[in-house]
């Protein structure tokens, strides 16, 4: 039983890690989309349009080129993060599939053993 317990523990762990990774992937996607919208908005601006950045409760005037650069940098950063998380998700999916297969085969084995035991005892009773 202990090996099955261990396997199912590993399976649950792999599953919860996978869920976590997927949700952080979704979060990153939201951030990426928001920054993309900001970038699109910046691209449409006139050269002399004023831009402010909210820092806490204050609006700080900011250079347009600086703001654009910041958004570009952030987009790049988020993209890298997305790639990193995707890679992790792939690995975790493999681990998850492996854990599931191991668990399933351990369970079938156990069930087969139980069935054999039952047959054996039934045969004994007949004798």
């Amino acid at each position: 039983m202990s090996s099955i317990e261990q396997l199912s523990k590993g399976y649950n762990q792999a599953q919860s890690e996978l869920t976590q990774l997927v949700s952080s992937r979704q979060q990153l996607e939201t951030q990426y989309q928001e920054n993309k919208i900001v970038k699109e908005e910046f691209d449409k601006l006139e050269d002399d349009t004023k831009i402010y950045k909210q820092i806490g409760p204050v609006l700080m005037p900011q250079d347009q080129s600086e703001a654009k650069l910041n958004v570009d940098k952030r987009l790049e950063f988020i993209k890298r993060e997305i790639d990193r998380v995707e890679e992790k998700i792939k690995n975790e999916q493999d681990r998850f599939a492996k854990a599931r297969d191991q668990l399933v085969s351990a369970r079938t084995e156990k069930m087969q053993q139980a069935a054999q035991l039952q047959q054996a005892s039934a045969a004994q009773q007949k004798q």
Binding site: N35, V38, E41, K50, K53, Q54, L59, V71, R74
Partner: peptide, 21 residues
């Protein structure tokens, strides 16, 4: 008008531009 365009950035726009936005 100062319009929040997302991620904490505000852009100054005339009423015409704001309405368009």
């Amino acid at each position: 008008f100062l319009i929040d365009v997302g991620t904490g950035y505000y852009v100054e726009k005339s009423s015409e531009e704001a309405v368009k936005f």
